[in-house]
Amino acid sequence: MFQRICMNLFRKQSSEINIKCRCGATFQGNAEARHQRNLLFTKEKQRQRENIGRIEKIEVQYTGTPEDVTLMMNKGISTPFNCAQHMSEMLMQRSALALIDDTTLWDMNHPLEADCQLRLLHFRDPDPYHVNKAFWRSCSMLLGAMAENVFKEEVHVELHSFPSPNVKTGSFVYDVNIGLDNWQPSQDELRIMSSQMVTLCQKNLKFERLEVNVDLALEMFKGNKYKREQIPHIASQISEGKTVVLYRVGDHIDLSRGPMVGDTSFVGKCTVTAVHQIETEQGILYRFQGVALPKGFLLNHFAYGILEDRAKKLNPGRLPSAPSHVSDVFQPASEAMSL
């Protein structure tokens, strides 16, 4: 117990340090853009938090293990993770996703907005389809974060997007423009990328969700032509062109409709398996692919090797196209909105 408390304190400190790093110093290129994006994100999050004003209470009815309870939580502040903190440490550690009123999937770190019934989902549920999907999506986002950071400063990396996550394809994907022709990563480079991704996951970073105005999102992504094109399109599909959903993990910010798993500590074994060059309407992009298992899923090397080999093949997911043709990715997820 004592050890655990110490760990928590340490975690708290390290996150503070992280925030300090975000606010200090001057950067160049990609790093500068990331820094600015983070400042805007933090500012907007702060603004939204202050807008709540007087704190109201909501009633959250939790059903599931260890027992059904009703919790009084703060409207617009308390998250499902906070609910889990009130109930049991086991729930805190294993819950990857929340289910509100049996219909809506909800991020663990997304404040609750009204009275609701709450279920907490985890990877060993009888049918963990949605958790698996959220896990795959989170891994895609982490892959993007890794791809943006892993190259040297002279390589200008522009993230494009990732297709709708499908566990059955055997790999999660991120499409990236790195401005190189005929680049083929060596085995060592892939290993370095894998290790970078593992290092990222080991930081136990939370996935922070924030809904922002289109204007602000456009300002955040002013350095990325693909995201700039996508933002109005996504907004038109989910909220009559007003807002888009952003996620932040560590200092990486990305567009995604979510939901994501609670934090990066859920990622266990993880490999970046291949980078394929793909020809698209928007020029030559690189499709980064990887495979991962949640923490606690122990698979022997032979079996995991089979998964890795399969993840090396080009993922059949939708190829990136101009936003007007984007069909399945940014639609309000049918399964996310209504189960």
Binding site: R124, P128, T169, P294, L299, L307
Partner: peptide
């Protein structure tokens, strides 16, 4: 036994 767990889904597809 639970073929819906993520590693089983991946292995079954492989």
């Amino acid at each position: 036994a639970n073929r819906n767990l993520i590693h089983n889904v991946l292995l079954d597809e492989a």
